[in-house]
Amino acid sequence: MSNWKLICKLDDIPQLGSRVVQRQSGGDIAIFRNAEDEVFALHDKCPHKAGPLSQGIVHGRKVTCPLHGWNIGLEDGHAVAPDVGSCGKFEVKVEAGDVYLLA
């Protein structure tokens, strides 16, 4: 059963950066923070060749995979056209400076 879990402080994630959340099963989750302090969570696996998206460059509401430069939308996990593919997304919220993940 999934429920909201406290992950870290918002300030533990750099602006235009990310942190990796390790799960016991199901693979890592990447948590991103953009310049507007919006927080997003995606499966840390690029739909192209499984590159760690958490290591990419964050810009606007997108992240660029470090391996081959695919751009992935942070809101929905969909690859930006013309590339096709998507990776799982997770619900996150920020309350009083704390980041919670629904997992």
Binding site: I7, C8, P14, R19, V21, Q22, I31, A103
Partner: peptide, 8 residues
Amino acid sequence: KQFIPIKL
């Protein structure tokens, strides 16, 4: 911090 994963 960037090097340290958050364990869930």
